[in-house]
Design a protein around this nucleic acid. Sequence first.
RNA 1: GGCCCAUUCGUCUAUUGGUUAGGACAUCAGGUUUUCAUCCUGGAAAGAGGGGUUCGAUUCCCCUAUGGGCUACCA
Length: 522
Amino acid sequence: MIIPHTHNSSSIVRVRFAPSPTGPLHLGGIRTALYNYLFAKKYGGTFLLRIEDTDRKRFVPNSESYILETLKWCQIEPDEGVGYGGDHSPYYQSQRGEIYRVYIKKLLEEGHAYYAFDTDQELHVKRKEFHDRGFTFSYNADFRMHLNNSLTMTRKQLSDQLNSCSSYVIRFKIQPGEKLKMHDIIRGNIVVHTDHLDDKILLKSDGVATYHLANTIDDHLMKITHVIRGEEWLPSMSLHLLLYRALGWIPPKFAHLPLILRNDGKGKLSKRNIESLNFPIYPLQWKDPETKNIITGYRELGYFPEAFVNMLALLGWSPGGKKEIFSLKELINFFSLEKITKSGVFFNISKANWFNKQYLKKKKEEILSYLYKKLKKRSLFYEEDYLSKVIHLTIDRVHFVHEIWKHSFYFFISPSSYEKKFFHKICDQRIIDQLEFWKISLSNINQFTSVHLRLFLFFQTKKNEKKRHQIMQLLRIALVGELKGSDLFIILEMIGKKESIRRIDNLMKKIKEKINNGNGFF
RNA sequence: GGCCCAUUCGUCUAUUGGUUAGGACAUCAGGUUUUCAUCCUGGAAAGAGGGGUUCGAUUCCCCUAUGGGCUACCA
């Protein structure tokens, strides 16, 4: 009988998002956080945030606040960890050195780790030598007995070496000859032979633990049940499993997420060379503390966090079925690690825009307040009813709140210019005569409603469709400035008789000016 | 080079041995419309290749190819 993968109260889910503070989060990072969050919430578990700052050289100021702000904006805030407290502090790896030291000592004593004194330079030379001869150098069982480490020393030699203050690292001793059988929730069974592994450094010469060690110890101590991380970590899963075993701990379950790939050429998404990408990769604007360059984010571009999260959730995961719009609650409800895709994914900005549009349709309030602000700047005031009508008439044309103005300005102000090509064509005395005729006709209409106006104009031109077409284009240019926009008669009704006539006058004036100036030249 | 992972329309994906291989975005055509956009209808568009297993493979296995990751005293 197959026992399904279930989670109950006896196995409380605890997951972590563990970024390193080397700059802003990108699409891939935030998606990893999202999946961790969804998984935790689905099983009533805990989502914790740990900062993996074991590499001091790569530290970038403001990264942490950026990460915190991003999670907040996406509404996937941690329950525990940096910025949220908890029983397992500190949540910065840089503050956990004492803890790591305890376990390093244990590994050393039990023969799972050893001191190594080879310098960076020596190893570099060795690697190059091997490479030139067509071989691969690996610090492993084949070579460690020929290198400068505690395995090749007597006790005395070792203590002398250590006392002489020469710098050293501590390496993990991999036992060769084993077929390691592992399981990944997304990928299934994976087998790696330990012969292919090398003796990874656990403690760097500056006394700081490497990611591998810190990560393993922290995940255990913080009672992490599921490690959900990017696929770039898949090759280290064997190392981590071996570390759990050496420390006598039960490992968590692993799920390695497919990578988000660059669609401009090669490689995984990263913070490098983002200029060549045709889409933004940061959720929030990032100001580089060194260069002061500002790189825009999805928030600044006008994406709603809900749309952003929805889009991201479906990039590498699908619950099946045809539904695509999911609230965060629904995402939590439908989420499952098993349904995450295995292959790398390409990001599609037009789909992201489509998602935003779906959410925009439900956000009339936000557009309303945006219009209010926009109008207030011009000292214009309109009734909410009027604004609502405008929004109703134009919302289908936009993907973002800020786009509403360029599609609705003509309900509030006269066009500031006329479409050049068309305007050029209508610079003619006959056009002025026509406009004059329609201006008078319109001013004589008492019921200035779209229904009446439509009837009137259609009646007037019932024998000449071409003419109707032409006059409507003329009026549209007068009202909007270009051959675009909402229903002409509705615009007329909305802005009213007085304003309509004023705009027709404006156009006539501009045509006259053009005719007069033009004559001087030709 | 070594090790690992992956491979369904252009993109995101559904379909876990029997389907006309479904949907969404994008794209194209037609319709609606005074215009643009929307909207509606429709089209084109996919199982990398080769071997097996099987009555039958997109689905299972192997090989090749391609893509990706890792191969640091980076995470």
